[in-house]
Structure formats: C-alpha cells, structure tokens
Computed example of a mutant assay.
Amino acid sequence: MIPMLQTVPALSSRPEAIGAPDSQAPWAPGAAWLPEAGLPQDRHARIAARRCFVDIKQRFMAATALVDGPRGDWLRYQVRQTQEPLDLWLLRGAVFSALAGEGRTTERAQSELQGALDSVFPNAGELLPYGVR
C-alpha cells in the first residue's frame, strides 16, 4: 500500500501571504512593539535635544536680525529652513562673516552665538575660520 501524502495549502491561500493581519506581527494593531516608542529616558533625551536645537536656532535668528539688506534676508531664510543642529553649524561661517565689523551689538551677538555653538558642539572650536572668536 502506498502511503497518502499530506497536502500543504498553497502559499497564496495562507493568511500571511494575502495580507491578513497577523496578531504576532509588530505592525499589527494592539501589538506590544511600537516603532519609536523607546524607553522614557530615550524620550527625555529626544526632548532635550529638540529644546537645545530650538534655543540655538533662536539665537541664530536673533543674530541674523542684526544683518541688513539682501544678505540678512538670505541668512534669515536659511536659518528658518534648518532642521538639525548640523544645518546651523554649516551656516555659522556665513553668519559670523556677516556680523564681522558691524559694531558692538554684533560682537555681543557673536559671543552669545559662539557660546551656544560650544554648548552643542563641544571641542569644535578649532574648526572655526581664522579670526572668528
């Protein structure tokens, strides 16, 4: 006698293959795993980083408000478009250059801006262009 072979359902008839939600899948509703949920300290770290970015961006906006004309308009636009601290870091040379030689008010703005940059990017002072400090 020949033993009967068990048939396996075709791949396309299995619920996973046709897109039916699987209760064990991480993307299923009610799943215990949520992307970007993280631990509470991770959330606090993200909030602290965002606050720091907003603070330095406001300082950049205050500094660029002292620059008149089309150059000041361009700098303000560039600062408004930033999404990360690195974007502001890349704009620092243009901002410091625009503030150079404008007077006592801009010297104060430069020192405040430099302090904010040092708080976000510690030990990066050697990367500044010559004469900016």
Rank of each mutant, 00 (worst) to 15 (best):
S23N: 01
R76K: 14
A124W: 08
L39F: 13
T105M: 12
D22K: 02
G101K: 11
Q110M: 15
S111G: 06
L127V: 04
S97K: 05
E16Y: 00
G38F: 06
L66F: 05
P26K: 07
E112S: 13
L66C: 04
R80Y: 06
S111A: 15
E84K: 03
T106R: 12
E36C: 01
E36Y: 12
T105P: 07
L39N: 03
L86P: 01
D68F: 09
R59G: 05
D22Y: 01
Q110T: 13
Y130I: 12
V67M: 08
Q24V: 00
A31G: 04
G115Y: 03
A65C: 03
F60W: 07
A94P: 00
I56T: 13
G19Q: 00
P35E: 12
N123K: 07
G38K: 01
A49P: 02
E112Q: 14
Q78P: 04
L75P: 03
L66V: 07
V95R: 06
D42V: 02
L39I: 00
D68T: 10
P15F: 03
G93V: 00
Q83D: 08
P3E: 05
Q24L: 02
I2A: 05
G93S: 08
Y77P: 00
L86T: 08
S97N: 10
W74Y: 07
Q58M: 12
P3G: 01
S12Y: 07
F60Q: 07
W33M: 10
P70I: 11
P40R: 09
I18Q: 05
T105H: 13
L90Y: 02
R59Q: 15
D55C: 08
V54A: 10
L75F: 05
Y130D: 14
W33K: 09
S111D: 14
A28R: 00
M61T: 13
L66E: 11
P15R: 08
G101F: 11
A31P: 01
L113N: 07
Q58C: 08
D73A: 15
V132S: 10
D73Y: 05
P29G: 02
P129M: 09
P35L: 03
L34V: 13
R108Q: 14
Q41F: 03
E102I: 11
